[in-house]
Amino acid sequence: MTDFSLSGLTHAKGDAVRRRSRFIAGWALGLALPVGLALLWEAAVRLGLSDGRLMAPPSRIFATLGALWTTGDLALHLWATVWRVAVGFAIGVASGTALGAIAGSSALTRRVVDPTLQGLRAVPSIAWVPLFILWLGIFETSKVALISVGVFFPVYLGVLGAIASVDRKTVEVGRIFRLGRVALARRILLPAILPAYVLALRAGLGLGWMFVVAAEFMGASEGLGYLLVDGQQLGKPDQIVATILIFALLGKLSDALLVAASAPWLRWQDVVREED
């Protein structure tokens, strides 16, 4: 008895260790390329193979970041951008989810609304910029609106598509157990569309980060997009590369947060299918 449970325990422990080392190996492999390239570039500049004027070596980029941080500029710009993305994302997700759900569950609404939305989706997003500025002014509102538009479409499409592809056979299980409309939505439809919904949110978030730059290019006095424009106009390539680096980190971080937050509900997707 004791032996059995002990061996079971060591087995579980071995599993955990293996999982952990695989996790670390995954990180190491993923980091090898960017870190390697950075080190090579650093060495090239130090050895005088390049002056690193247009493409600063990592040490100078970190120095730039450090300087921006100590003056408090970085926190200011970072916060401005994160705030815009957060608000725009929230509005885009709310409206995209609502319209997608309505269009997905009512054929009539879909026929009325969907063609128009598909048409609007075909408009290059930057084309909205002048209009939004005229309508909403040059300040926050127009920027948040642009980001919302960017987030809206992938979320709308994702929800619509997910509802359309819910298996009729699964819905029948709900009918056999006499679920009403609300119970059917809660116990069958919601869990069924959740994986596709999370993918749509991730796509929407990615577009949110893309659109915030477009929004901040159109005359902002703060935000990471402003840092980019400022870096270009004043000839500070270090600042541009540093900002790009921050965007990469923010994008990856926010996506990872989204994935982690949804993981408890999608655990069933990760299990390996066993053979008969």
Partner: peptide, 20 residues
């Protein structure tokens, strides 16, 4: 005229809900 509590149905496929 509609599904009833007293009547159960087993389909050709198991139709288990994958998230439960």
């Amino acid at each position: 005229t509609a599904p009833r509590e007293e009547i159960g149905l087993v389909f050709q496929e198991p139709r288990l809900l994958p998230w439960l």
